[in-house]
Design a protein around this nucleic acid. Structure first.
Length: 111
DNA sequence: CTTCTGACTGAAA
DNA sequence: GTTTCAGCCAGAA
């Protein structure tokens, strides 16, 4: 894999998140080797709309399962609606049973 | 060049 | 459970 951009890798991992699952900025950053670069992942998401391919950014939340990036979607409720449409339950801006729905690329892609 | 900010995280009190 | 602080990297001013 050519290290063109840190963002490219982020987008690729995000697209690998299964339907109805969620991951975290930290998990993605750790998988890419930037354990403390969680902020960059979020920053990359902010620029994800410029990408040609769709990036399911709504499946990426912070480590508490909180929809921290909702304000950056078309509408503040869009993110929750998308997640709910995938069969997830949102409670007070937070993914219900987050630990169960959590998808860790480090484990899932370690094969 | 310096400084600040951010869709974050972890440790410490 | 809470608040506070520092570290992390990229990009804009």
């Amino acid at each position: 894999m050519k290290r063109n951009d840190f963002y490219e890798d982020v987008y690729q991992v995000v697209r690998l998140i299964p339907y109805g699952r969620v991951s975290t900025y930290g998990a993605i950053a750790r998988y890419l080797g930037a354990a403390s670069g969680a902020r960059l992942v979020g920053y990359a998401m902010n620029a994800s709309h410029t990408q040609a391919h769709y990036v399911p950014a709504h499946r990426v939340v912070n480590r508490h399962g909180l929809l921290s990036g909702k304000q950056h979607f078309a509408t503040p409720t869009k993110m929750q609606e998308l997640l709910e449409s995938e069969g997830l339950s949102i409670e007070n801006e937070q993914v219900k049973d987050f630990e169960k729905q959590f998808w860790d690329p480090t484990i899932a892609l370690a094969l």
